[in-house]
Amino acid sequence: MSTNNKIKVLCVDDSALIRSVMTEIINSQSDMTVVGTAADPLVARELIKATNPDVLTLDVEMPRMDGLEFLEKLMRLRPMPVLMVSSLTERGSEIALTALELGAVDFVTKPKLGVRDGLLNYTELITSKIRAAASARLLPSRRATAAKAAPGVAVPAAESLLRSPLLSTEKLIIIGASTGGTEAIRDVLQPLPSDCPAVLIAQHMPPGFTRSFAQRLDGLCRITVKEAEHGERVLPGYAYIAPGGFHLSLGRSGANYVAHLDQEPPVNRHRPSIDVLFDSVARHAGKNAIGVILTGMGRDGAEGLLRMRQAGAYTLAQDEASCVVFGMPREAIALGAAHEVAPLSEMSRRVLAHLRSFGERANRV
């Protein structure tokens, strides 16, 4: 592949070792090349002008200018795909989630020990995320969108669908997402009423980040959002997020749904895997579930959504125009797994409308 056809990557990190290893990893791939490295955002700013990269890898904590400040300016003045490189700490996870809110496509964690060998072991992960970033659709950041909105405007809540209770211990909403999914999940959960059926979520995310993600969503939503715990009862008004490094599946204990966590091998290279969650829902909930597959690279969840549909569940896939990466929804649609294809802005409304229509049919019986 000629240099002109390769993904051009600019690596920004204050660590010379990280810059060196990232360069080694990226240049080992036939379809990408490092066009420059920078120790801080001020140097990076000039290199962006000089090299016109396709993807920027950006450290979150850097000298001379905070990584988040630089990202916010970059997405406002010269939007481009950004992959954050974050330390696996509580502060690092919060910064990474804020970066996604500001418009970064995704993030990858730095290993704590043996930095060079650790990063080299991450070759497949890092390069796959760079490929996803290079093909990502750049959507307006939440901060930019909020700045344009009138002060005091509430999150749309599908008000006409909230007039009668949705509370049900049988109904379930099941969501799978990957690249671009943290903000997409937020868009789906925020309009949901406090009495909606239980929500189970598999989002591709490493250990150490899902707790911060759940806490952030919990402060923004009417429903209670938490990391799933093994063996806990699945209740209406709650959203349960698969912890990083664990598969989440649905089980039964008598008449109750329960959450099951395990560390079986990755499926489709992921743990949590969306297919694992969707398959368990097809077995234990069938027609009582609504399945939603959101933005993400690859095909995890596509076959599981089909099995949910075959088991009687109602299924939806996010449309291409609103996806950061259309991979997973596209695969699900190609399999015939989705009853509906909907823009992200309509997803909550469609889910609630189906729940309402199901309740009305049940009341007529």
Rank of each mutant, 00 (worst) to 15 (best):
T182K: 03
L220R: 12
L161A: 13
I185E: 08
Q190R: 15
S168H: 05
R222P: 00
G208L: 12
R142T: 14
T179W: 04
T210F: 03
P206R: 13
T210Y: 04
I185F: 09
G152A: 13
G181N: 02
C221A: 01
G152Q: 10
R211W: 08
P197L: 12
E159R: 14
A158K: 01
P151H: 09
F209R: 03
D218W: 06
I223H: 04
G208A: 13
A150H: 09
D187H: 10
E183G: 00
L235K: 14
G176R: 01
G176T: 03
A177F: 04
P165Q: 06
L235M: 15
G180M: 10
G208V: 11
V199N: 02
R222V: 02
A154L: 03
E183C: 02
A177K: 03
K171F: 06
D195T: 06
I185C: 09
G219C: 07
A184W: 08
T224V: 08
G176M: 05
P165V: 05
P156E: 09
E229P: 00
I223S: 06
A158L: 01
R163T: 14
K171S: 15
I185L: 15
L217E: 00
K226A: 14
R211C: 06
I174H: 06
A149L: 10
R143V: 11
L162C: 13
A202P: 00
P151Y: 10
M205E: 11
D195A: 10
S178C: 01
R163N: 13
P207L: 10
D187K: 08
Q203C: 07
P151F: 11
S164N: 03
K148V: 01
A202I: 03
S168P: 04
A146F: 11
V155W: 07
P191H: 11
L189R: 08
A214H: 05
A228I: 02
A177Y: 01
R216Y: 01
I173E: 01
S212M: 04
T210V: 02
V199C: 04
T224L: 07
I173S: 06
G208M: 13
V153I: 13
P206K: 13
D218H: 14
A184C: 10
L166M: 12
S164R: 04
R163D: 12
I185G: 08
P165H: 07
P193Q: 02
V234D: 06
P236W: 09
T224W: 04
S168M: 08
R186K: 15
G208I: 11
G180K: 08
Y238D: 05
R233A: 15
K226T: 12
H230P: 04
P151G: 08
D218P: 04
Q215K: 09
H230I: 07
D187L: 05
I173C: 06
A149W: 00
Q215R: 10
P236E: 09
A177W: 01
P193V: 01
L200P: 02
R186E: 15
I185D: 08
G181S: 02
H230C: 14
T182W: 04
H204L: 15
A149S: 09
A228P: 02
A198D: 06
A214C: 09
P193F: 04
T182C: 06
P206F: 14
E183K: 05
E159P: 12
T224D: 11
S168R: 07
